[in-house]
């Protein structure tokens, strides 16, 4: 009897390890930026050409930075949730429009002049927001994806919860699900709102 217990025990340990391993999403790479200050950047606003936005503008507020693009299919799935959430007035959401033109495989961005790229980006992003609703307090443009690299963006959509001191406290990889919003983002945002 005893001689069967050891292999059985080893087998059960193996089953537990495999069960944990198989239930993890290998595409979710934990971000080293959580707990670190949000990287600084300065990019143009969608609505006001020539005017720039930088994360320090949001100092003193708990806010969400949502990375999106009109070519991103998962963003479309996430969008109604963001629109509904913004109507409740929960948190300010800054939309970082990521590689709107360059990220779209259908366009050869190398043939465009910077000015043409900027105007095409504005036109596409603006049209998408007026069609699907605009949940953003403001939208900013990361046309070449440089800001994305500093934030460790590797798939769109991604969302960062940033506290009053400008520290990233949570990163959602992939679309925000109602579950993630209710169980993770909102409780943490409420707690962060009480911090000075």
């Amino acid at each position: 009897m005893k001689r069967f217990l050891i292999p059985l025990g080893l087998f059960l340990v193996l089953v537990v390890f495999l069960a944990i391993g198989l239930n993890r999403d290998p595409h979710e790479v934990p971000s080293p930026l959580v707990g670190k200050p949000a990287p600084a950047f300065s990019v143009e606003k969608l609505a006001e050409p020539g005017k720039t936005f930088s994360p320090t503008d949001m100092q003193g507020q708990v806010w969400l930075l949502n990375v999106w693009a009109s070519w991103c299919v998962s963003c479309r799935a996430e969008h109604p949730l963001l629109v509904a959430f913004s109507r409740q007035g929960g948190l300010p959401i800054v939309g970082l429009n990521y590689k709107e033109v360059r990220g779209d495989g259908g366009i050869d961005a190398k043939k465009l002049s910077p000015a043409d790229e900027a105007s095409l980006t504005r036109q596409r992003a603006g049209a998408w927001l007026s069609q699907h609703g605009d949940p953003y307090t403001l939208s900013v443009l990361d046309m070449d994806g440089r800001v994305g690299i500093d934030y460790g963006v590797y798939g769109v959509p991604e969302t960062y919860l940033i506290d009053k001191k400008g520290v990233i406290r949570f990163k959602q990889i992939g679309p925000i699900t109602p579950d993630a919003l209710e169980k993770k983002i909102l409780p943490l945002a409420r707690q962060l709102a009480t911090e000075s």
Binding site: S31, P32, I149, Y151
Partner: peptide
């Protein structure tokens, strides 16, 4: 790169 994307 590690500072942005982690040891992964």
């Amino acid at each position: 790169l590690v500072a942005r994307y982690g040891d992964f």
